[in-house]
């Protein structure tokens, strides 16, 4: 980033560890020195506001972690923000291996593995299809290709509820309703608009001369794709993998409509565990289960960092 400006040693008023002044963008303008006091009061406002906001955003994560490490007696007595007096990992074990949904009492592990079995193939299939589509749209346009693409993009805004029932019928006719294959197909279909857009824009941005040179050398559609485009598009593959992995893992609606109880993905099972009406509510187990379900996208997010931001920006801002 262009954070080139830093103030010299900060005065006694400004807080330690913070030396870049808040209004430093203005320092590039033609002007003299600013009195330090003004700067530091602005600093306090800026960092104070950001700090308060950060606390608001962090509280739920903190509460989840703290609650999941307490025993039930402590939860009944204390308040949800206090740290655990005695740390116990029992809720985690219980959430993973013993929590009940309906007749099954083998915990969230079942949902976890279902989600893995859904997410991995869905990500691979949808990215494979979308990258080839994007490549065709960018480099091999044919009559009508843009019309299909427009329908696809407009379709991304249609509420899923409108299309769910026809898909149920189609999958039932194909004999895939209620199976993991059906759900994988559904994820590939609904991931297509944004993924195709992502890949199309990326391939359009590559220099056209590359494509032309390969054409002159006699390479065909698939040859250019596998030999030239694929090796050059590693970054966009990573970005779209991040997007798809978190998106599919977090899905609830398709999971609940297109699978049966024994193949429910993790989010559906989590909701069933926490919101089940029978039995005593075990809040610590619930929070441990919630954290376990959120762990996969959170890990993807923290590991990928900037790429995640790039992915959502690319997915959100078209063009």
């Amino acid at each position: 980033m262009d954070k080139s400006l830093t103030m010299p040693a900060s005065g006694p008023v400004s807080r330690p560890g913070i030396s870049a002044p808040a209004g430093s963008r203005l320092e590039t303008g033609p002007q003299g020195k600013r009195p330090r006091k003004v700067l530091s009061s602005r600093n306090i406002i800026v960092y104070g506001a950001l700090g308060l906001a950060a606390i608001y955003y962090l509280i739920p994560l903190y509460v989840m972690v703290v609650t999941s490490l307490k025993g039930m007696p402590e939860i009944r007595l204390g308040n949800i923000f206090s740290p655990p007096m005695e740390i116990t990992f029992e809720p985690w074990v219980k959430a993973w291996a013993q929590a009940c949904t309906g007749l099954n009492c083998d915990g969230l592990s079942r949902g976890f593995w279902n989600s893995v079995r859904i997410t991995v193939p869905s990500v691979i299939v949808s990215i494979a299809i979308a990258s080839v589509n994007g490549y065709a749209l960018a480099n091999w346009r044919f009559k009508g290709s843009e019309i299909f693409f427009t329908i696809l993009i407009v379709g991304a805004f249609i509420p899923y509820q409108v299309m769910i029932y026809p898909i149920v019928i189609i999958l039932r006719e194909m004999g895939l309703y209620g199976t993991l294959y059906g759900l994988i197909l559904v994820h590939s279909i609904f991931g297509m608009p944004i993924q195709t857009l992502l890949f199309r824009n990326y391939f359009v941005s590559l220099p056209e001369e590359l494509f032309k040179a390969a054409r002159i050398d006699g390479a065909g559609f698939w040859q250019i794709y596998f030999r030239i485009m694929l090796p050059m598009s590693l970054p966009i593959f990573v970005v779209s993998m991040i997007l798809q992995t978190t998106g599919i893992w977090n899905d609830f609606l398709f999971g609940v409509v297109f699978t049966r109880p024994d193949t429910y993905p993790m989010t559906v099972q989590l909701n069933n565990i926490v919101n089940s009406v029978q039995g005593v509510k075990e809040y610590n187990v619930n929070m441990a289960a919630t954290l376990l379900t959120g762990a996969v996208p959170l890990i993807v997010y923290f590991v990928s960092g900037r790429l995640f931001v790039r992915g959502i920006a690319a997915g959100a801002v078209k063009g």
């Binding site: 955003y57 899905d251 993807v300």
Partner: peptide
């Protein structure tokens, strides 16, 4: 941004 990575269920 981290809440955005979490699902609506969570």
């Amino acid at each position: 941004l981290y809440p955005f990575a979490l699902s609506f269920i969570v």
